[in-house]
């Protein structure tokens, strides 16, 4: 029988459990965001289009999932290098924030008093920046922890 219990390209058993809990939290975050959106629309009338609403509700949910996974060390598979993840999140943050600023400057984000789908660039940019910040912070904590080991 082999010593190694898992494929290094898979998440290990603790990570799978942590990711399950993160999915649970993300699900409730999505429900909360949808409820908030429904209440705001009921109170203030239509203030954003369907695409913007979907994007604005999905982003907090994805952020909750990613940050929970990062904080519980379940975002990276064993032996997976962090550089790829940092590059991807950095790229997403920069491109979407730049596009978001362009959209805001061109006045595409609010049309006839309604928030449009173009707000999603800014939302995704902020989401990627938050995930990246959480990831870098976690790497610093892990490095410190490793030095103390």
């Amino acid at each position: 029988m082999k010593n190694n219990i898992g494929n290094q390209s898979d998440y290990d058993e603790r990570q799978i459990a942590a990711r399950g809990q993160a999915f649970q939290l993300a699900y409730f975050a999505l429900l909360g965001a949808l409820l908030l959106y429904a209440c705001s629309e009921g109170l203030f009338g239509r203030w954003c289009d369907a695409g913007a609403a979907a994007g604005l509700c999905a982003c907090p949910s994805v952020t909750v999932f990613a940050v929970t996974c990062i904080w519980r060390d379940a975002y990276r598979r064993p032996n997976e290098r962090p550089a790829g993840m940092i590059a991807l999140m950095g790229f997403l943050a920069v491109v979407n924030l730049a596009l978001g600023i362009v959209r805001i400057c061109e006045g595409d984000v609010v049309q006839e008093g309604i928030l449009t789908f173009f707000i999603c660039n800014t939302a995704v940019g902020v989401m990627a920046a938050v995930i990246l910040a959480a990831y870098l912070l976690r790497l610093l904590v892990l490095r410190k922890e490793r030095e103390e080991e």
Binding site: I5, N7, D12, R14, R76, P78, E149
Partner: peptide
């Protein structure tokens, strides 16, 4: 053995051994 070496030997992440 370091935590990383044990983790590699059993196929889990170092953080799992630490936990």
């Amino acid at each position: 053995m370091s935590q990383q070496q044990l983790a590699d030997a059993v196929g889990v992440s170092r953080q799992t051994i630490n936990a």
